[in-house]
Design a protein around this nucleic acid. Structure first.
Lengths: 176, 176
DNA sequence: CGAGCTTTTGAGGGGCATCAAAGACAGTGG
DNA sequence: CCACTGTCTTTGATGCCCCTCAAAAGCTCG
């Protein structure tokens, strides 16, 4: 199967990474720096096999200028991403690490998950413990502890990097 | 003097607020929900006297469609805000409260500050302790403790809600 | 099988939230 | 003018969540 997943991250204090978002097939990358004329502020790295296609700067702007409707669509996309980013700020600022862990699992399930025989959901994306930590702003160790906690409660099943959600409702109730 | 300042905030878990950004004269508000067709995700509240001007939805889109250059400008603005929001995520996730406090003071100084006789900077905006807490994702009490710490070190001068930065360099070195 | 990763588990400590209460300050009405 | 009230600010005490450090165990690959 052709999947194609990238992670987009920033580098923070003492090299600690912060994953800003994941990108999949069809997503646009880098257009923001193009538009705002700022230097690239994030780094992209392949998680799964991905094919990338480059668009020339002038072509990009030409198409955009000739096609107001497309421009509007892009603005829509930007607005949505902005709202998501702001929500993310609030999550990190207010929620406990446990709540963010639960939210991450549910988000991944929404984006990549697929139902599995017996009623669970396979996450459909395999991240390292550290990558998860970098997404929710915590450490490897804490991610591990929270995951084992969930496993011991029968909420998830874990085999290596493959995670299956067994009791989605328990996660839902965790994110309050 | 005519200033006009608003705060834009979201409501999080158990009603705790998160100030997403401050807006001043000339800023646009609410256009994001307009464009992305999502429900309003934030609330605006006046801090200083402000005059607000409403634009009709259809007018807005008309102008945008007829004026590709304007659309590009708006996209620029959106991209910049997006980058700022993502930076903010990283700050909250990685930096200590003390670092965020210092960063907040410097940000406010950049946005509203004005030089004062003797080499300091008056912040030029008066926020309650709680509002500052809501901006950097902490509590009132912690803001107060950090501010007194800075005052006792002679880094800032505080009279009620008016804050003067005396030793900007010390703040700079705090944000690492 | 050894080297280098990731994952796991444990111990310890500190930063910060929470709770509680007193002080400061402004507005209100008697 | 002064007690009265509500809001904001300050300070102190307590505890716990989670980061940090350390080390062992598991996995992968040459």
């Amino acid at each position: 199967m052709f999947s194609g997943k990238l992670k987009l991250y920033k580098t923070g204090v003492n090299g600690r990474l912060q994953i800003v978002r994941l990108a999949s097939a069809g997503d646009l990358l880098g257009y923001r720096s193009l538009i705002s004329d700022e230097p690239y502020s994030a780094t992209a790295e392949v998680i799964d096999e991905a094919m990338v296609c480059f668009i020339d700067k002038t072509t990009f702007f030409d198409v955009l200028r000739r096609n107001p409707q497309l421009a509007l669509e892009m603005m829509k996309k930007l607005c949505r991403e902005l709202r998501e980013a702001e929500d993310h700020v609030m999550d990190v600022a207010q929620k406990s690490t446990r709540e963010r862990m639960a939210a991450l699992l549910l988000t991944l399930k929404e984006a990549y998950g697929s139902p599995i025989l017996g009623g669970g959901f396979s996450l459909g994306i395999e991240l390292s413990r550290e990558e998860m930590a970098e997404m929710i702003g915590t450490t490897q160790e804490t991610v591990i502890r929270l995951l084992s906690e969930l496993r011991s409660q029968g909420v998830v099943e874990i085999v290596g990097r493959s995670i299956t959600i067994l009791k989605e409702k328990n996660l839902q109730s965790l994110i309050s």
